[in-house]
Design a protein around this nucleic acid. Structure first.
Lengths: 144, 144
DNA sequence: ATACAAATGAAACAATGTTGCAAATGTAGT
DNA sequence: ACTACATTTGCAACATTGTTTCATTTGTAT
């Protein structure tokens, strides 16, 4: 689905900044950082507008924000395809070697059995470790 | 176990700042923010020293850092009791009403089935919603 | 009591995010 | 296509959070 349609469905004004963010996220299957999104936007990038648009898109449920250890922040489209999903569905993997973030679509968010009185809204699962590429590099280095 | 013992076991120097942090965390069963830890330290509080000590204690596995949406940061003792545990064991609940963070010791971190090549180190589960106290307040307000 | 490495605290910096406000832009109605 | 109005933008200035450098102080083992 094209960026302008997504905005229309959510009744959010169609502006260049927002379209650029959605396009950048659609063109990648992995979550992107602010810098990565910025690099796709030729010159017409304003830090303040970016922050405001990310906030608008996030509260609308279009974009999901993934935060690792409060330094690394990545964005992804909420469930590419489905529109009105406001909820995170899968876990994310953070590589402590190369600092990349990978969607683990295989690992679904389970149903949590919350204690009496608690109401569920959303959840995040961050798994940390070494990603496939890096663990391969480490292993081969050992063999040298 | 007393603060100085914990530091000794981990072969970390016993300094007033570190002891103050551990004491503050031991006196509360819920995770504390920097401000909350600070308020327990009369005057002898230095921001830079705090950051450095939190980092030392975190990498030693004594303290665990819980980050919500990269604005709210809370600290807790890693599995009060067991010493050499470097890993998070239970999920945390973030209340979107009162912004409190609660340990959900009932909800253990499951075994994740990572894809081929990925190596596991640690993980965080953050569940967001409305806590017991706040959901009660909301419900009673509806009845008025 | 001494010696040495590690920790502290100050200043200065860096990165990240927010607010107020005038100008520009998007959208709905004609 | 034009107008009107609210929303969004972009700028300056600010606020918060975290880091680096370095001289001084402190903890610990001998």
């Amino acid at each position: 689905m094209i960026a302008s349609e997504i905005l229309k469905i959510h009744e959010i004004k169609k502006t260049p900044g927002r379209i650029a963010i959605i396009n950048a996220l659609q063109q990648n299957d992995q979550p992107l950082s602010e810098t990565e999104i910025k690099s796709g936007m030729n010159e017409m990038y304003d830090r303040i507008t970016f922050y405001r648009n990310i906030q608008t898109l996030t509260t609308a449920g279009i974009v999901h924000k993934i935060v690792i250890d409060n330094t690394i922040i990545k964005y992804e489209l909420s469930c590419s395809g489905k529109e009105h999903t406001h909820h995170n569905e899968h876990a994310h993997f953070y590589c402590e070697e190369c600092h990349s973030v990978t969607c683990l679509k295989q690992i679904k968010i389970p149903e949590f059995n919350l204690p009496e009185g608690f109401m569920y809204d959303d959840s995040d699962i961050i798994i940390k470790g070494t990603c496939k590429k890096c663990s391969h590099q480490i292993t081969t280095k050992d063999l040298e």
